[in-house]
């Protein structure tokens, strides 16, 4: 499947804010236009091309390649499309995300899926603190037991009928989530602190 590929060229000295690099915000832009976008505010904020080699086709499907553990806000406020991260990601992954799919093969930093409104986020590796903080709706897929705050409640083990469909939809994506099998998952829900009804589904590692 063709995608818009961002390959990290070098580790950033400071943390990068990648909230501008979502499929909906990049819609209709050429690769040159994308390369010149600024990551963060201010005239001295770095441009995308300073840290990423960009290639492929801008068609709503984004891939981040490399260790992006110093890149924050990946998929923030995303409204459509798919993002796959082959390495680690930084903090605030999928912050305020509204729709779409994000799959991370590596680890995620703190506040992943914070304030998330809807959509699906998968993190194959470890997750930092405050996962799903103030999350309202949406689904988080995990393979490793997270450290959850008190407002995420334990709903027990379940066999969910939609999971085979969801996992089948990953079959064409180059991601570690392809290897997940349908099985009982452990469900956590929250953030009940904001009357949230989102779900965290923990797969046994395969």
């Amino acid at each position: 499947m063709s995608a818009l590929l961002f390959e990290l060229k070098k580790q950033p000295e400071d943390r990068l804010d990648l909230r501008v690099l979502t499929p909906d915000k990049l819609k209709g832009l050429s690769l040159a236009e994308i390369a010149s976008l600024r990551l963060g505010s201010g005239q001295h904020a770095p441009q995308v091309a300073d840290y990423f080699d960009i290639s492929g086709e801008n068609n709503g499907f984004i891939i981040f390649d490399g260790d992006c553990s110093r890149c924050d806000y990946i998929g923030a406020s995303m409204k459509s499309g798919t993002i796959i991260c082959h390495g680690n990601v930084g903090d605030r992954l999928a912050d305020n995300m509204r729709r779409g799919l994000i799959l991370v093969d590596g680890d995620a930093g703190n506040y992943a899926a914070s304030r998330m409104i809807a959509g699906t986020v998968g993190i194959y590796g470890k997750v930092g603190d405050h996962l799903g903080y103030m999350m309202k709706r949406g689904t988080i897929l995990l393979t490793q037991t997270p450290k959850l705050h008190a407002t995420m409640v334990d709903c027990g083990q379940h066999q969910l009928g939609f999971l085979p469909l969801l996992l089948r939809s990953f079959a064409t994506l180059e991601t570690r989530f392809k290897t997940l099998q349908t099985q009982p998952v452990h469900k956590y829900a929250g953030d009940v602190g904001v009357n949230g009804k989102s779900e965290i589904l923990l797969f046994s590692q395969t």
């Binding site: 809807a118 709706r137 379940h158 969910l160 009928g161 939609f162 969801l166 939809s169």
Partner: peptide, 25 residues
């Protein structure tokens, strides 16, 4: 009753409705 969950998979919208047996899809 407010606990239903929408999920868009492959461009199609599905509804997951919590029921006594588990979830109706």
């Amino acid at each position: 009753d407010g606990y239903q969950i929408s999920k868009v998979i492959g461009g199609k919208r599905y509804w997951r409705i919590p029921i006594m047996e588990g979830e109706f899809l």
